[in-house]
């Protein structure tokens, strides 16, 4: 996407802070997280388990679990700050302007209603369609998400569909009202590669049609590389790197991003398939649990480049065109490269 002008931001998250109420005061869950998703584009939010990806998504939806609250920063959806919006306003936005696909489609679908009823319900609620129009709309959505024999499947219950088809139904519900922002939390982790590729293709096709901005959550940057235009990498509740997906993938700036990319095996095809695979790079240690984050750079205890200066938390600083990274070393290497 380099070279083209970036469309206006559909979502802009600015210095977002989320805390968990603890016995000894609030514990930081997300700290000073900033990223933006342009209209019609996809931003992938990447990070290991426990880094705060789902909490970021739930904060945007106004659905943080009990005990967690969003206490600093702004969440601007088309200019409106959701962080301070009243609950009634958030309810009205959810399902229409703003919608979400969850990791496990079975838990998000209602087992006692047919998939047709569930899509139609969204259309009735948010677009005020009558029953017949809503049913017709539901059928159209099932066709859009490429469910075979859509007319029959309208009357199927969720348990009668495969995992891939259920996720398609979730997408149909989430996109029924043409939201401006779709949040997809690991939408394909529970599915196999073939279905994953089909679902990503589908999301892209629908995005081209509707101009929806997508926030896609994953722990695997390679897996979402094809669909993401931009990425934001989270580590222990802080944003450590942002930038265009292709460039971050080709030349990650932050040591954590580099480590994440190096530790997953890459498929080698054709002539490249010959020869044994070397051992994978490992990132030693693990993400610090809540309440055990150090005062400096969160990644320093696992970072091979860490030094004394890393005791001060590095801010997210510009690192080349459209890119930013939070690492004291990044400035150094840029200087070296320039010199």
């Amino acid at each position: 996407m380099s070279g083209t002008t970036i469309p206006p931001l559909a979502l802009s998250v600015e210095h977002l802070g989320v805390t968990l109420a603890g016995r000894d005061g609030p514990l930081p869950v997300l700290e000073d997280v900033s990223f933006g998703v342009p209209a019609g584009r996809t931003l992938a939010l990447i990070g290991e388990s426990g880094c705060g990806k789902s909490m970021a998504a739930l904060a945007l939806m106004g659905l943080l679990p009990e005990g967690l609250r969003c206490d600093t920063g702004a969440i601007r959806l088309l200019g409106e700050d959701l962080a301070v919006a009243p609950p009634a306003r958030l309810r009205a936005l959810r399902g229409s302007t703003l919608s979400m696909i969850f990791q496990e489609p079975m838990t998000a679908l209602n087992p006692v209603f047919t998939v047709g009823e569930q899509i139609a319900e969204t259309l009735r609620l948010h677009q005020g369609l009558d029953a017949a129009a809503a049913r017709a709309g539901a059928l159209e959505m099932l066709r859009k998400v490429e469910i075979p024999a859509a007319a029959q499947r309208l009357d199927a219950y969720p348990h009668q569909l495969s995992g891939g088809m259920r996720q398609r139904v979730m997408i149909a519900i989430a996109l029924a009202c043409r939201p401006r922002l779709l949040i997809a939390d690991e939408p394909t982790t529970a599915l196999d590669v073939t279905v994953q590729a089909q679902i990503f293709d589908l999301l892209k096709t629908l995005q081209r049609e509707t101009g929806t901005a997508i926030l896609l959550i994953s722990h695997d940057l390679h897996a979402v590389a094809d669909i993401a235009d931009e990425v934001a990498v989270l580590y222990a509740g802080t944003c450590v790197e942002t930038g265009p997906a292709s460039r971050v993938l080709a030349a990650p700036e932050h040591p954590y991003t580099r480590a994440l990319l190096a530790c997953s095996p890459r498929l080698r095809l054709g002539a490249a398939a010959a020869g044994p695979a070397p051992d994978l790079l490992e990132v030693p240690g693990m993400v610090p649990p809540l309440g055990q984050r150090g005062p400096g750079c969160r990644f320093a205890p696992r970072c091979e480049l860490a030094g004394a200066d890393c005791n001060h938390p590095p801010p997210l600083r510009p690192a080349g065109a459209g890119r930013a990274a939070a690492c004291w070393r990044v400035g150094d290497t840029t200087l070296e490269a320039v010199a």
Binding site: E48, C263, L280, E282
Partner: peptide
């Protein structure tokens, strides 16, 4: 069921 960082540790262990 593991994220990529942990997956690398387990795959290396198995080898």
């Amino acid at each position: 069921a593991l994220d990529v960082a942990v997956q690398a540790q387990i795959l290396n262990l198995m080898r």
